[in-house]
Nucleic acid binder design. Structure first.
Lengths: 339, 339
DNA sequence: TTGAAAGCGTTACCAT
DNA sequence: ATGGTAACGCTTTCAA
């Protein structure tokens, strides 16, 4: 049987409350008493019971992190930073996967699992304003990503402007027929919608015609899904001048499909991504992409969550994290490649 | 204030115990009573308090998953399957990162955080027999991967034989000078040691001389670390006929370094990986690799953990998960590429 | 089948 | 500065 605070108290010749005082450190304790208690803890190899503690003070020290799919390199890197940053703040992280299931998102938001976690960081796929409203009494939540709502705290990168910037960059590199890969079909992905919007805005600024045939639908945001979608597309359509993929994972799949068909990047077509994951930087050719600091996203999200937990009546805030476009070989024009 | 079981009981006109009976379902309850209680729960939007429940029955319904680095695609995919499989069994998963820190591994093993989690799945980097012995009273633990010990349950793939097989495959493809990339320097990685051992055994079987200059050290198992290590190596050494990278992430970095130097794969040098991650399948060229079913690893690990939690005195078991080598373009010889 | 009461291990309040 | 007591919300004896 594991020793309890009572056992420690008995051994140290004090009351259980004193043991608690030593542990929490909020009330002062005589150095002598403290020493005796700490020694008793050592001897008994005492570890406080977490459940009892959270029952008593209503805090578990655990936060939830809900992501669509942990196996995506982008999500994995995000999770890595959140786990790391949370650990530094003394928080544990429980991972939940929503598997692109809107129902699961609403479930997590509304109530489920409450009180095992003190708060939730949610990276939704489709969550819209209506879904947020469902949960009348929300647990402390911070939303991550390009979901369009303002009823909760959130951290995001301005995907509209970023997508517009990327579109204009590709045009500046000489592309006229610029396609996007990852447009949403049945899934209604908030991220896809945002980036498509930015792409269209970019085209409008450039005075380029909008051609919906250049918006390649692909709901499965994996290299496999992307390769299949692009291969099928190219069987029916002309090769565009550039393909702006809505994530690096999509871009990796695109590079694969193009290579299979003997199409050279960037000579025959330029390719760009979004997210700046490691495997994109080291792809062949390395990917031009939209980069942002995932560690900062993690820190800001945890800051907000901590404030929200402390005070649930705060006005919801939105934090916008900076991005920048990193140009790599996948979009080099002929002149710069001559160097 | 959140409603408690007592509130539900009052509203339904029953005792708290009856509410509990409805919830746990272990004692039979009159359909009429059950219906009344369930209605009361609905009306009050009742969610049982997790802390109280775990305090009472000594189970949290949470397991820990400790990995070196969640941002590695391999770890991410593993975590994905474990989270998914655990969810199906009604378990939550708390993620811990050991950051390649042996101290943190021992910490997790020995006692820390006990009783917030019912058990631990640990994918160690360096953990050896001695470290396991430290924890006299271990919590229920299942070890993942090629760590060399037999005092706890574990699930692994036979990396020795797999590495040997890969070495022989590369030889069969015509390679004579076969290098490995990812050999351990200061880190003493158990996985690196195992795979190096298999590589050497393969060479011995082939009657090839062992040349330690072909064992390229790289402790940082990321594409970046790999690209740097290989670039530096090639500045000082001749190009081998084949490079067997100890993970696909290393191989992706290797492809990048080779491409930067204008070295063609597989024409000038063959490259192979280990793990079969998506980004390797869609790399350019696609990677030959050692593949195994991560979902099965997850299921087996959870099976064992459940058994261990139920009975802590069982004899430790080892489960070996099958692997197979998948040949892709990164090792195609000239003849097969002619097809 | 249901109810009453005790207890899981911890911490807060109120004395001393 | 320390101790006693009660309470967090649930489940498990034991009785009815």
């Amino acid at each position: 049987m594991r020793p309890t605070g009572k056992d420690v108290a008995r051994r140290a010749g004090v009351s259980p409350k004193t043991v608690s005082n030593v542990l929490t450190g909020v009330v002062s304790v005589t150095p002598r008493t403290r020493a005796r208690v700490e020694q008793a803890m050592q001897e008994l190899n005492y570890v406080p019971n977490h459940s009892a503690r959270s029952l008593r003070n209503g805090r578990s020290g655990l936060i939830g992190l809900a992501l669509p799919d942990l196996s995506t390199p982008y999500s994995a890197d995000l999770a890595h930073h959140i786990v790391e940053a949370a650990h530094e703040r003394g928080w544990g992280v429980q991972i939940e996967e929503t598997g692109h299931d809107p129902q699961r998102e609403v479930e997590l938001m509304s109530q489920a699992r409450t009180n095992i976690i003190d708060g939730l960081i949610l990276n939704p796929v489709v969550l819209d304003e209506s879904a947020v409203k469902v949960g009348v009494a929300l647990p402390p939540v911070v939303l991550l990503g390009e979901v369009n709502q303002h009823l909760t705290d959130r951290v995001w990168v301005d995907g509209v402007t970023a997508a517009s910037d990327m579109t204009k960059l590709l045009a500046a590199k000489g592309a006229r027929r610029i396609a996007v890969l990852g447009a949403t079909g049945e899934r209604r992905s908030a991220t896809a919608i945002t980036r498509t919007e930015g792409y269209r805005a970019g085209l409008a600024e450039l005075g380029f015609p909008r051609d919906t045939a250049l918006e390649i639908v692909c709901d499965d945001w994996t290299p496999r899904g992307s390769a299949e979608a692009l291969a099928a597309y190219l069987d029916q359509h002309d090769l565009p001048d550039a393909i702006f993929c809505f994530t690096d994972s999509l871009a990796i799949g695109a590079l694969n499909a193009l290579s299979s068909k003997g199409i050279r990047v960037p000579d025959d077509v330029m390719v760009a991504g979004f997210d700046d994951i490691d495997d994109g930087e080291f792809a062949n050719p390395p990917l031009t992409t939209v980069s942002f600091d995932r560690r900062e996203v993690a820190e800001r999200a945890l800051d907000m969550l901590a404030r929200r937990i402390a005070n649930r009546d705060r006005t919801p805030e939105t934090v916008t994290v900076d991005y920048r476009i990193i140009e790599r070989a996948s979009t080099h024009d002929r002149i710069s490649r001559k160097n």
